[in-house]
């Protein structure tokens, strides 16, 4: 078991009002799974992902990653955790505008000890001939591929993706999902994808449905669909 979430709650106190983002969430995730967390806006999926990724603290509960309790980490340990064990892919890419594709990936690998070969990874994501181009010279899909390369070059334990196809068109989105599938199968990476797009759930090995800060359904998918065949 690679990730154990135990009774996680997150709320915000706004004066008199208590806003609950996550309400007593528990789950277990195993090595090599491709998890898709579905849910409408405000269901708490991004909050959960951020807490798993060490970018936020829960109000209550514990999380164990590879046996270590990350909810007990102080700021320094949390930084090291994010740096070495988590790869994050964002909806809006978040690349450095004045670094080339290769340098963007290098930015991440310089910080870790266990990095993969940069040019190899960029070739794998299909950007072998774009390594010296800047983000402004690339399309959305290409930028997202750089972001994915950056995330996996670190050789993380978990690859977390927050709406990775959210700002891409249908065709490009499919390509990205196919790439993620490849990373899951070939590199044996555990991937968690968050989306509100139900169609994407078809390619997962397991789908978690969230609503109002709780997990309402946990469905195992025996026959995950090939991403090329997904339509939305």
């Amino acid at each position: 078991m690679i990730l154990k979430v135990e009774n996680i709650s997150k709320y915000y106190q706004m004066g008199e009002v208590k806003v609950t983002a996550l309400n007593n969430v528990s789950l277990e995730i195993f090595d090599g799974e491709f998890i898709v967390i579905l849910g409408p806006s405000g269901s708490g999926k991004s909050t959960l992902l951020n807490i798993i990724g060490g970018m936020d603290h829960p109000s209550e509960g514990k999380i164990y990653v590879s046996g270590k309790e990350i909810t007990k980490f102080d700021d320094k340990e949390l930084t090291l955790y994010r740096r070495n064990h988590i790869g994050f892919v964002f909806q809006f890419f978040n690349l450095m505008a004045n670094l080339t594709a290769k340098e963007n990936v290098e930015l991440a690998t310089e910080l870790t000890n266990d990095a993969l070969d940069i040019e190899e990874i960029l070739n794998e994501v299909g950007l072998g001939d774009r390594i010296d181009h800047f983000p402004s010279q690339m399309s959305g899909g290409e930028q997202q591929r750089v972001a994915i390369a950056r995330a996996i070059a670190k050789n993380p334990v978990l690859l977390l993706c927050d709406e990775p196809t959210g700002s891409l068109d249908f065709k490009t989105g499919i390509k990205i999902l196919a790439l993620l599938k490849k990373v899951n199968e070939v590199h044996k990476k555990t991937i968690i994808v968050i989306t509100h797009n139900i169609a994407i759930g078809e390619m997962a090995t397991r789908v978690l449905k969230m609503r109002s800060g709780e997990i309402v359904e946990d469905i195992k998918n025996e026959n995950p669909m090939d991403p090329e065949r997904i339509e939305w």
Binding site: N98, L99, E106, L107, E110
Partner: peptide, 15 residues
Amino acid sequence: VKKLNLRLFRQIKST
């Protein structure tokens, strides 16, 4: 050169 520093230099250069 560390990439974060490289980014800084380029930022300065462009402005």
